[in-house]
Simulated scan of single mutants.
Amino acid sequence: MLEIFADDMGVSYSQVRTYRYTAGRWPREHRAEGVAFEIHRILEKLEDRFEQIAKPPAHPRTGKARWTGDAAKRLVGWQVDTPRSVQEKVEAIHDLGSDEQVAARVATDFLRRPGVAFRAAGDQAGTPGNVPSEIPRLVDERVTQMRSGSAPARPRPSTGSLTWLQLSRST
């Protein structure tokens, strides 16, 4: 029966099952008028969902109290589509960097920024497995060279070439 309904609507059977489950979690008297079905779906697993949906957070841009997909996802602890906080941005980068090739490329690109490399070396120094032990020394040497003006001028490494940290070993 649901398969026929799904076919008639032009959606998958699993989508109809999701709609049905969500509708079952939200009796008519507890559904929030003017709030998207998607928000109800996101909040459906909360025990206090009927109270929560009645208290929309302030919209970050307008300040007006209304639900957005990201606001609902924040409430339930899901990853948001548009990260705002530092932690949300870090989680998004970790998610994108779950592929080893992507992670290696991004790490290399980030470490090309002297300020980032210096901070990473300082934050992670002494943490086994996070940063090779020579990085803090290389960063210190490179910063000293840059400050004294003795660092050789060289073009910014292009994609796929050695990083500035690797290049500083040859100076």
Score class of each variant (00 low, 15 high):
residue 62 T to W: 01
residue 53 I to W: 00
residue 49 R to Y: 06
residue 52 Q to A: 14
residue 59 H to M: 01
residue 111 L to K: 06
residue 52 Q to E: 06
residue 89 K to F: 01
residue 50 F to I: 02
residue 121 A to D: 06
residue 78 W to C: 01
residue 125 A to H: 14
residue 69 G to M: 11
residue 72 A to W: 00
residue 28 R to H: 12
residue 8 D to W: 13
residue 69 G to H: 11
residue 77 G to R: 04
residue 109 D to I: 12
residue 149 G to F: 09
residue 115 G to T: 12
residue 170 S to K: 14
residue 75 L to F: 05
residue 9 M to Y: 07
residue 63 G to P: 00
residue 141 E to L: 11
residue 63 G to Y: 09
residue 113 R to K: 07
residue 160 G to K: 11
residue 14 S to E: 11
residue 120 A to V: 14
residue 46 L to K: 05
residue 15 Q to E: 05
residue 171 T to F: 09
residue 32 A to Y: 05
residue 5 F to M: 08
residue 141 E to R: 15
residue 86 V to M: 08
residue 164 W to I: 08
residue 155 P to D: 15
residue 104 A to F: 04
residue 123 D to E: 13
residue 65 A to E: 06
residue 137 R to C: 02
residue 57 P to H: 04
residue 36 A to L: 06
residue 97 G to H: 00
residue 130 N to Q: 14
residue 4 I to N: 14
residue 57 P to E: 01
residue 95 D to R: 15
residue 56 P to V: 08
residue 86 V to H: 10
residue 171 T to H: 11
residue 118 F to C: 08
residue 107 A to G: 06
residue 129 G to W: 11
residue 168 S to Q: 14
residue 143 V to Y: 12
residue 144 T to L: 12
residue 18 T to A: 12
residue 132 P to V: 15
residue 110 F to A: 14
residue 111 L to G: 02
residue 116 V to A: 09
residue 75 L to R: 13
residue 132 P to F: 09
residue 38 E to N: 06
residue 123 D to C: 08
residue 14 S to G: 07
residue 170 S to Y: 13
residue 26 W to R: 06
residue 44 E to C: 13
residue 64 K to H: 07
residue 85 S to H: 09
residue 124 Q to M: 13
residue 33 E to L: 10
residue 123 D to Q: 15
residue 98 S to D: 11
residue 59 H to I: 06
residue 56 P to K: 08
residue 159 T to F: 09
residue 32 A to R: 05
residue 79 Q to D: 09
residue 72 A to S: 07
residue 145 Q to V: 03
residue 120 A to K: 05
residue 44 E to I: 04
residue 157 P to N: 14
residue 50 F to C: 02
residue 3 E to C: 04
residue 8 D to R: 15
residue 156 R to P: 02
residue 156 R to Q: 13
residue 118 F to S: 13
residue 103 A to D: 05
residue 24 G to I: 06
residue 55 K to I: 06
residue 65 A to N: 06
residue 139 V to A: 13
residue 42 I to Y: 00
residue 73 K to Q: 10
residue 57 P to V: 01
residue 114 P to G: 09
residue 27 P to M: 10
residue 71 A to K: 02
residue 54 A to W: 03
residue 105 R to S: 12
residue 110 F to P: 00
residue 121 A to M: 09
residue 22 T to A: 07
residue 28 R to Y: 09
residue 59 H to T: 02
residue 16 V to H: 05
